[in-house]
Design a binder for these strands. Structure first.
Lengths: 360, 360
DNA sequence: TTACCCTGCGGCAACGATGCCGGAAAGGGT
DNA sequence: ACCCTTTCCGGCATCGTTGCCGCAGGGTAA
């Protein structure tokens, strides 16, 4: 073995020792190259353990990189590779269910090397558009979206698709759009809630629903109707009240229901927040649950157990849905398979509590 | 005025018309330059309305940019300007209070042109470190952090500071660190809660607190002690129970308190979640609030109003705190003033409800 | 000796955008 | 006729990193 003169002399590398504290800039590959009097290409290869780098050089580079706390500049890499390892998430708000889903997404995404940017649309279509634009500008690698209750047109979705950027819809999905979706079987949710109320002997069920154009809400109503039909009960259009996803609206709606001539003996609320609004109104009317009136909510938020009476509610597996969503996203990024038809549907589960449990 | 030959011929620009739909890549400044047979510099200047660009050229460039839906590449700009217009937020979780604060931050940040990256540490110090590293790698322009309950050493904070990256602490702040802070006057919060319980005739107040090293919790205890002292009541060390920020721990702790020989007649819980745990235990013991025992929580979560009995709680202005935090952050970015000593302190406000209201 | 192959490294271009400098063309002034 | 100014634009370097090509030097085989 011939004695090759090492490219880097020991004395030289000593003289660099106190460089780290002087630098206020982030160390770059060029700094290392200059200090070691070698080219940036070589430093780059040495750091990535490329084969064609001398042993001595590699060691010297790695040692200095360690010492100077070198961190590769992600911006430069992103510019080069045209990917940012970032996922843009757009959700209507950060309530319990969505926060839990985001936690699920985050967990899987982090594991796969992605960082998430969460934007809240605040249930506003305008802000959803703005968020989409911003995230598009930020060059996120893809989108995970749950649409706002106001969203009636889908230009922003089309725009994302036209740029061939991966997109997964979850929770509040849109049907006539060709992307993978992760959702709850909301129809089934409506079925089990309604069937349960009928089983408990309730005859006239009112539904407090979300906005009229909202799929999630409409699907639950669909399940409700199905079960009514199965049980040969004539549905009453007036028993379906649409309102914004907000406790106060539900409160008002319930008061009207209870004041009207055709007072229901049970209420199926499309979300727990709405159920709570209904509950407050019911209490004000001096009605007792489950005796005078039954109440079932949706989402199975922890607080439903804690209220008096505890509210029956339909569980939607938020955390698992979040994880599943992120997994599909990752799969889209890593494989060429066409997943646009993919749809993961979670099965709802009813938790029966005091508000509707007559023990029948 | 002399007839200058326009750089761009009308026919040429016509021939480009159907370019947009062919491109699947994002349009770049170079595409425009090539199409118009001018240099990228000129395109850049034209788009930014620089003075030394001919009128014809400017119009042609802008028209084509519009047509091709040109969007400047943020990555390239960030690499050049060394700023990403991104704020890294690290929080322990996304519970009601923090989600509300994040909404406040988001609102102000968006307005100022920043996008936020939210990372949850899940109350784990390890994940807080990992999150810091990731956001540092992502070259965020600055940090907004609320530390986890596990956090006992502050290397990651020091690291951020050593790189001279702007940092604002909020909610759960650290005292011996020289950065701007936004927080609640927790001592005062402890004072008003305790004073209220004394006013209502409770004699032996137990405190269900967070982990022992947690500032927020300890400050509230400090206020509690102060008021006891003012009222010449001898504090009982055993009446302070430390537990993780979790409803179940509070439930267990309360059961122990109520079983012990020195049973308290009031409980001050350092958070509403802990108060709920306590409430469940109290109910199991068959004790009535406010008659047998008083209960005060902290955070004033909406659910406190809804429980039976409704729980008295200390409001902490989460949304406003979030906005204030973001405003300081923006101020740090835009001015050279040294804000490291700045500390914004919000005043707590007690909402008295059934759980502690004996009508005295 | 010639021909060739490895090893180890440097140089250049590229990603998309901006800043700075220089320079051509045309006009004005003396 | 000369010089100088203005207008308008192109070229080059730069940000930090990687990929590709090429090349020197030494070794091996014919």
């Amino acid at each position: 073995m011939p004695e090759r003169v090492p490219v880097i002399s020991a004395t030289l590398s000593k003289s660099i020792h106190n460089l780290a504290r002087i630098m206020e800039r982030q160390t770059t590959i060029k700094d290392i190259a200059q200090a070691l009097r070698i080219s940036t290409s070589t430093v780059s290869r040495a750091l990535r353990d490329a084969p064609d780098v001398g042993e001595e050089t590699r060691k010297a580079v790695k040692a200095l990189a360690e010492e100077l706390d070198y961190q590769p500049n992600k911006l430069a890499l992103s510019l080069l590779n045209k990917q940012t390892n970032t996922i843009g998430i757009i959700i209507p708000n950060l309530d319990y269910v969505l926060a839990t889903m985001v936690r699920g997404i985050d967990e899987v995404a982090l594991e796969a090397g992605y960082t998430v940017m969460v934007c809240q649309s605040d249930e506003s279509f305008g802000r959803e558009m703005v968020n989409t634009k911003r995230l598009l500008d930020s060059l996120v690698d893809g989108f995970i979206i749950s649409v706002s209750s106001e969203t009636r047109v889908f230009e922003h979705i089309k725009k994302i698709q036209s740029k061939k950027i991966p997109l997964v819809l979850f929770d509040r999905v849109i049907d006539n759009v060709n992307v993978p979706k992760v959702k709850l079987d909301n129809v089934e949710g409506g079925r089990i809630a309604t069937q349960h109320l009928l089983d408990q002997g309730y005859k006239k069920i009112a539904v407090i629903a979300g906005p009229e154009n909202m799929n999630v809400s409409n699907e639950r109503i669909e399940g409700h109707y199905e079960v009514l039909k199965q049980n040969k009960i004539k549905p009453d259009k007036n028993a379906i009240i649409h309102c914004e996803f907000n406790q106060d609206y539900a409160y008002i709606a319930t008061k009207e229901l209870l004041t009207g001539k055709n007072r229901p003996d049970a209420i199926f609320a499309i979300s727990d927040r709405l159920a709570i609004g209904a509950m407050i109104a019911i209490k004000e009317f001096g009605l007792k649950m489950p005796k005078d009136i039954g109440l079932v909510g949706f989402n199975n938020e922890p607080i439903t157990k804690l209220l008096t009476p505890a509210i029956s509610s339909v569980e939607m597996h938020a955390f698992e849905m979040g994880k599943a969503t992120a997994k599909i996203f990752i799969e889209m990024m890593h494989s060429d398979a066409d997943l646009s038809e993919k749809e993961i549907v979670f099965k709802p589960k009813l938790f029966i509590r005091e508000s509707s449990n007559r023990g029948l």
